[in-house]
């Protein structure tokens, strides 16, 4: 077991609550551009953060990088709901993983009503 750090990456409002819990926070303003955020995330990973919380709004923009990291053991990127309406990013991502593994969408039963 080795020591890991936790980071939170997202809108300032949400970061405040994470900060109070002792998580290292990295607020991002809403109009930051994508390459900038990607670099930021890469630095966080290279600094050894093993869990990174990220808001949905930002995760949507950094989709490519998140997919890249999803195949690696570290970091674990956890997408949390951001301000505004939920985009169901995490659920979609979960569903994608299942389709990849099983070859069929086993979570789709809700839509069809068959269980």
């Amino acid at each position: 077991m080795e020591k890991g750090k936790i980071a939170a990456f997202g809108e300032k409002d949400i970061m405040l609550i994470f900060k109070s819990a002792g998580v290292d926070v990295f607020p991002v303003s809403g109009n930051a551009n994508v390459p900038e955020m990607e670099n930021h995330l890469k630095t966080l990973v290279s600094e050894g953060y093993s869990i990174i919380f990220m808001t949905e709004t930002i995760a949507g923009k950094l989709d490519r990088l998140i997919k890249y990291y999803s195949g690696k053991i570290t970091p674990s990127i956890v997408v949390i709901p951001g301000p505004g309406r939920s985009s169901q990013y995490a659920i979609r991502e979960l569903r994608r993983a299942i389709i990849k593994a099983v070859g069929a969408d086993v979570m789709a039963e809700e839509k069809t009503g068959i269980k």
Binding site: M1, E2, K3, G4, K5, I6, K19, A21, G22, I51
Partner: peptide, 12 residues
């Protein structure tokens, strides 16, 4: 909330 007194880290 400027100076959080709580520290959190994980053993991975």
């Amino acid at each position: 909330l400027l100076m959080p007194s709580k520290k959190i880290s994980v053993m991975a």
